[in-house]
């Protein structure tokens, strides 16, 4: 595979939004499919070491979603929201962590076709306030999630070698 695609996070101090961008070595149709096919979605979204339960998944305008991350200790972390415009070019949805009810972000993802069958994803998350944005990311659960992801990466690396 070519050099690893780098991720860029843009979170300006004092603002209530942030951007995440990254390119992928796959055509846009497939990137879209990985976001709208429940089996594929569950494969990459959940943190490692956690059980990912995709309870509801209706990736169409007006559809709902709810998923739960279960850690080995039996703790459950629920997330839910609503889908809005869903097309190859852009996917819009609300996002709410159930441990922090009433604090909802609006996530707009654009999928941009690049030459050589590549795709650029840009996620724009708008929070209700600056402290919502900062608080969401600072909270310990996210830290636990990223530790989980690292372990899954290792598993992937082993199965690929």
């Amino acid at each position: 595979m070519s050099a690893k695609n780098k991720i860029t996070i843009t979170a300006e101090p004092g603002k209530q939004d942030l951007f995440v961008t990254r390119e992928f070595d796959a055509p846009r149709e497939l990137v879209f499919k990985a976001h709208t096919d429940p089996k594929l979605y569950a494969q990459w979204l959940g943190p490692r070491g956690y059980e990912m339960v995709l309870e509801t998944f209706e990736p169409v305008d007006g559809g709902k979603y709810r998923y739960i991350h279960k850690d080995p200790q039996g703790n459950e972390y629920g997330f839910h929201g609503t889908f809005h415009a869903m097309s190859l070019e852009s996917m819009v949805q609300t996002f709410e962590f159930e441990g922090y009810p009433g604090h909802v972000s609006l996530d707009s993802m654009t999928l941009e076709e690049l030459p050589n069958n590549r795709t650029k994803i840009t996620v724009h998350s708008v929070f209700q306030s600056v402290s919502d944005r900062d608080g969401m990311i600072q909270n310990g659960m996210e830290k636990g999630m990223s530790e989980g992801y690292e372990r899954l990466d290792e598993i992937f690396a082993q199965t690929n070698s």
Binding site: I9, V20, R22, F24, L30, V31, W44, I137, S146, Y149
Partner: peptide, 30 residues
Amino acid sequence: VTDWVEQYRQMWEQRFDRLDQVLLELQKKE
């Protein structure tokens, strides 16, 4: 501040690394 962004960056990086794998598998199948 850097820790805060770094933590978030890692979360997305690991998530998208896994998406890479899913896309790779899909392309192989195709």
